[in-house]
Amino acid sequence: MTVSATTDEARASHVGIKLNNISKRYGDHVVLDDVSLNVEPGTVTALIGPSGAGKSTFLRCINLLERPDSGTIRVAGHTIEPGKNVSARDLAALRRSVGMVFQSFNLFPHMTALKNVSFPQQRVLGRSKEEADERSMQLLERVGLKEKAGQHPGRCSGGQQQRIAIARALALDPSIMLFDEPTSALDPEVGLEVLSVMRELAADGMTMVVVTHEMQFARDVSDTLVVMADCKIIEQGDPRAIMSDPQETRTRRFLRAVLER
């Protein structure tokens, strides 16, 4: 495993996320009700819960794709209060240290796989094309897609696209990675390719928050399982403990529904 350079690993192991009292509403509709979460550096947090619980919204609040109405976000030594004005510098710093992977990949279709991974490096980190391409090729090789470098995303399978998207996020050397149902749009078999890349990342000590319906991944890979329902975190702790003996009836109901499928 050579996903990230040792310096990245050292940095990753020192950065966690502290989210305090995050609230978010759309008009009258409350989506997040005073949610707090602590993600220890170098750990994997799996976020599960029924549809509409607010998982995606919560995840997207971490890198301010969604702007919470109140609360504080502490990432990589920066404290951000989204309810107030967020400076462009703070926002840039936040997004530099947090990478994100989407359910629908969201690769740039007009760029080759290589360009997808290199372009953000050139623009955000100011790397030269040569430096960026070199790093991109390392990462594409790491996710097993070196031979796809010259292809456009439209020519790649969903699983390949998602692995390119992971490489694109990793290329900016983030200390934290967010995943929003990264395998939900994929056939189960293809999803495994993506999950195995994520397992490697976790083994490398990347701090990760993963919204997922993959219970096996949540049980085997995550250090903390967080269950959300009705705009709140209703239960969190050791994944095996929660899965075998949930404390909340709402959790029990949800787990039964997913595990019996």
Partner: peptide
């Protein structure tokens, strides 16, 4: 697609 802008924003572009 809106996801294009979101991905770009998330990358800090």
């Amino acid at each position: 697609a809106r996801g294009q802008t979101e991905a770009s924003n998330a990358l800090g572009i």
